[in-house]
């Protein structure tokens, strides 16, 4: 792990794209938070993706007589109340969590970013209207809004993704809009107007490349939050549906067996915590590297 002093300057950029990428990767790796975050995330992602190869058992396969086994022996991390291998279930459980985190964030970004850029650049009444609507959506606490949507659409991974994306869209739009407002002040935007560029060109060719840093930072932090919200939904029985393994759901069933074995509860908790922690660290670290000026997101 790199121990260099955290650098607080903007990304130094080189001549070519490749150079810039090299410099970027270097500063990302030499940032302590990024490094810790990546150290946590890399093995988790690899193990999860390779779950079908690595997992010793089918995650839904029950082993009669081996319920709630302790770690060691035949089962690396023990078994659950139905005698299913915890190691395999934790590996597979990561798939739904990561899938949910990435897709719901992606969906929310694909809606929130254009809304934020457009609203911020156009300004005036249109902006006022859009932002009022976003504020309203944000005045329902995020988990409750997600709950409400899932309640109505029915539980399940897909519906959870839709719900979380809906909840995060206004939050992303707000952040993107405020970055847009500051870039909009720059004189090169006025120069573009002076040569008669279209609004679309200005929004997406002039502004967007210049707010890519806060957008990336926001995205990586959001993935962590999305996984957390998704796990909460699963914990409440509204996310991924059994028998598909899922960390949140595993914790909720482990809850009923807390006094018999601690392992059943512990493993999914540790993996879930480590994943969210990894994304949080990565996001904050990226903020240091890419965009030191933007303060910590005040929108939760």
């Amino acid at each position: 792990m790199a121990t260099e002093k955290q650098n607080s300057t903007t990304v130094p950029t080189g001549d070519t794209l490749v150079d810039r990428l090299k410099v970027l990767i270097h500063s990302v790796l030499s940032n302590r938070r990024c490094a810790v975050g990546l150290t946590l995330l890399t093995p988790i992602v690899i193990l999860t993706v390779l779950a079908p190869i690595i997992a010793p058992y089918n995650p839904t396969e029950t082993h009669m007589g081996a319920q709630l086994a302790s770690p060691g022996g035949k089962f690396l991390l023990g078994t659950d109340h139905l005698g299913r291998d915890l190691f395999s279930r934790v590996l597979y459980g990561g798939r739904s969590s990561l899938l949910l985190g990435v897709t719901s964030t992606g969906l929310a970004m694909s809606m929130g970013v254009p809304i934020g850029v457009f609203s911020g650049y156009i300004g005036g009444r249109v902006d006022e209207l859009i932002m009022r609507l976003m504020d309203t959506l944000m005045s329902i606490p995020s988990l409750l809004l997600a709950l409400l949507i899932v309640a109505m659409m029915g539980p399940g991974l897909f519906n959870a993704v839709i719900a979380i994306a809906t909840v995060y869209t206004p939050r992303i739009a707000r952040v993107v809009r405020s970055s847009t407002l500051s870039v909009k002040q720059e004189e090169f935007i006025r120069a573009a107007e002076a040569r008669g560029e279209s609004r679309l060109y200005i929004c997406f060719r002039e502004i967007l490349p210049n707010i890519s840093s806060p957008v990336i930072v926001e995205g990586s932090i959001r993935v962590g939050f999305a996984i957390l919200t998704g796990a909460s939904l699963s914990f409440l029985g509204l996310g991924t549906q059994p028998p598909t393994p899922d960390w949140g759901y595993m914790i909720s069933t482990a809850y009923d067996h807390l006094w018999s074995t601690i392992w059943y509860w512990l493993w999914p908790s540790v993996w879930l915590g480590a994943t969210i922690l990894g994304f949080n660290l990565l996001g904050d670290g990226l903020r240091d590297v890419l965009d030191p000026r933007v303060e910590e997101s005040k929108v939760m």
Binding site: S232, F235, G248, S252, L258, S269, L277, N280
Partner: peptide
């Protein structure tokens, strides 16, 4: 840790 560990994990 406070931010990353979900409340149902802390609570449990």
């Amino acid at each position: 840790l406070g931010i990353s560990v979900p409340e149902f994990v802390t609570g449990t």
